[in-house]
């Protein structure tokens, strides 16, 4: 119960309910669940190309031939990637940074996987859509990416756009509703 209570969103009462449920559940189910949980970290890892979670070497989005490899959407987290996928409005591929620039916490460009992104953008990418949240950290990251892409010969011609802020300032993409996020994606503008 103590372990269950450490899961996000699970308080003491919920942990107790889950524990009683598991005690009465069929043996096969409990074994399968335990197996899945213990395999999770071994089997699931970041996609070598974009950083999305996958059990293969490259994720389902990177290997899907129907998706437009010429447009890459840069997001802070896999949760944000999933939020954009739920809108069904983005036909391209992704790049997950895993963190954002944080001027107040001293997280600088050296702490983000930006060289890997620049490496990837060189061949055949027409547009980079920066979909970081409308926060100071998200803005800082977008400005830096635009600067870095324009400053490199290989990527200078790539169009760099930023999603429009239908998403409230200070908000999380993960919690934005699908319509708002979809419209923010449609209304993206070029970063000067």
């Amino acid at each position: 119960m103590r372990l269950l209570g450490r899961l996000p969103g699970v308080g003491e009462r919920t942990a107790q309910r889950l524990a009683f449920f598991l005690l009465r559940a069929p043996r096969d189910y409990v074994t399968a669940l335990g197996g899945s949980i213990s395999e999770l970290q071994e089997r699931v890892h970041p996609c070598a190309r974009c950083g999305n979670y996958t059990e293969e070497e490259a994720c389902a989005i990177c290997t899907d031939e129907r998706r437009d490899a010429g447009v890459v959407c840069v997001v802070g987290t896999v949760q944000d990637l999933m939020a954009i996928e739920r809108t069904g409005r983005f036909p391209g591929r992704y790049h997950v940074l895993g963190a954002l620039l944080a001027p107040l916490d001293g997280v600088g460009p050296e702490d983000l996987p930006i060289p890997a992104l620049l490496e990837r953008i060189g061949d055949g990418v027409r547009e980079v859509v920066v979909a970081t949240p409308p926060t100071v950290e998200g803005e800082a990251t977008a400005l830096y990416l635009a600067q870095a892409l324009k400053g490199s010969n290989r990527t200078a011609c790539v169009r760099v756009t930023r999603i429009a802020s239908g998403v409230q300032y200070g908000g999380d993409l993960e919690y934005a509703d699908q319509v708002t996020l979809g419209r923010a994606l449609d209304g993206r503008r070029e970063i000067e």
Binding site: L104, V136, Q168, Y169, G170, G171, D172
Partner: peptide
């Protein structure tokens, strides 16, 4: 502050 944006809006951003 992390979930409800009604309460603090964008006021918890620095600067």
């Amino acid at each position: 502050a992390r979930r409800s944006r009604k309460r603090f809006g964008g006021s918890l951003e620095p600067f």
